[in-house]
């Protein structure tokens, strides 16, 4: 008797949990753009402007939703089934991860102009007003008494660009080798008091907590911080050479085909390359590809000598060599006992 009762109530409870509803699939004419953290302001405006463009082209209305988070975490969410029609992430290796699992076509980087990167950025130094520690270039970062703020390359895409920018400078010095590069990185990370998990977290540590003398940051993030928090409090320093950071975009083929959203998804990404899209990108502190738009923003984006990810053999190699478990980053941050 008791046993039957137990079974019955178990079954009832089970039914109850199953029937606890789940929401219906999203409405048809919608796009989900899964992006990384520092593009919030950019895509807020793109999402406002693009529907009108789409309406004019096709006569259909559309709503664009966005999701922002750490680039790696966002890629993982898409892998795990987040129904993203397009991804706009911080590094190619995060989209590569989707490609190796068949969600995005292998040739994604050649499907759109400029290696599928509609805008670029670079890595700069943000210092306190008046530059009290006289930080001008990479060697100044490892002077004694200088504290450097950068997020953790393991959890932040921007931090990986920071790391590679520093390494690239060291490699390009006369007599620079892998060994001297790693030695420089070891000295650099010895000056880092805090490794925040994301780029915005590091910005907050530097700006709000007053920690550190220099913040390594995306150029767009540095420009935005000055705009939001007061141009009189911070200065941007361009080092002698830095890395050209290309945040890539792609249609998530598996999702777009399933949801039948390929046409608007592709139009959305192409819009980023249009003069209007480039203008929006430039306004939100990303360097535009379009030479006409770029000319209008010359003042804002001073020319700076850069190297690209090719210096490190491309993203797959850089990722495996430097950021995998036990890689170079782990080695240079292991405290010497």
């Amino acid at each position: 008797m008791n046993k039957r009762m137990a079974l019955k109530s178990a079954a009832a409870a089970l039914l109850l949990t199953i029937t606890i509803g789940s929401r219906p699939a999203a409405a048809q004419d919608s796009l989900l753009n899964v992006s990384y953290d520092p593009t919030r302001e950019l895509y807020r405006e793109v999402n406002r402007v693009f529907p009108a463009v789409w309406q004019k082209q096709t006569g259909r209305s559309i709503a664009v939703n966005t999701s922002h988070g750490g680039s790696g975490a966002q890629a993982r969410a898409v892998l795990d089934g987040l129904q993203a029609d397009v991804v706009t992430l911080a590094l190619a290796s995060d989209i590569d991860a989707l490609a190796t699992r068949g969600l995005v076509a292998k040739d994604w980087q050649t499907r759109l102009p400029e290696g599928s990167t509609p805008y670029t950025s670079t890595i700069v130094f943000l210092v306190r007003s008046g530059n009290p520690k006289a930080i001008r270039d990479w060697p100044d970062l490892v002077r004694s008494g200088v504290r450097v703020i950068t997020p953790n390359p393991k959890t932040s895409g921007g931090a990986r660009w920071n790391y590679l920018a520093a390494l690239g400078w060291a490699l390009r010095q006369p007599g620079g080798t892998e060994a001297t590069g790693e030695a420089y990185l070891r000295r650099l990370f010895a000056q880092v008091p805090v490794l925040d998990t994301g780029a915005r977290g590091a910005t907050n540590t530097f700006v709000q907590r007053g920690l550190g003398d220099v913040l390594l940051a995306w150029e767009n993030e540095a420009l935005l911080s000055r705009e939001e928090l007061g141009a009189d409090r911070f200065e941007i320093v361009y080092p002698s050479v830095t890395i050209r950071a290309d945040p890539p975009v792609a249609v998530v083929d598996a999702v777009a085909d399933k949801r039948g959203s390929r046409a608007p998804a592709e139009a959305f990404l192409r819009f980023l390359y249009s003069p209007e899209g480039q203008e929006i990108a430039a306004r939100h502190h990303f360097r535009p590809r379009d030479p006409v738009v770029a000319a209008r923003y010359e003042q804002k984006f001073p020319p700076v000598p850069t190297f690209g990810i090719e210096l490190f053999g491309g993203w797959p190699e850089a990722q495996a060599r430097h950021f995998a478990e036990g890689g170079v980053f782990d080695q240079v941050t292991t405290p010497a006992h």
Partner: peptide, 27 residues
């Protein structure tokens, strides 16, 4: 903890952060 710890490997890095780091690498 993540906000206040400093998260320096081997010194102020907590175990849950290591889990997150591994997840970031799709591991």
């Amino acid at each position: 903890v993540i906000f206040i710890a400093g998260n320096m490997p081997g010194l102020t890095e907590i175990a849950p952060l290591l889990i997150v780091i591994r997840l970031e690498q799709f591991d």
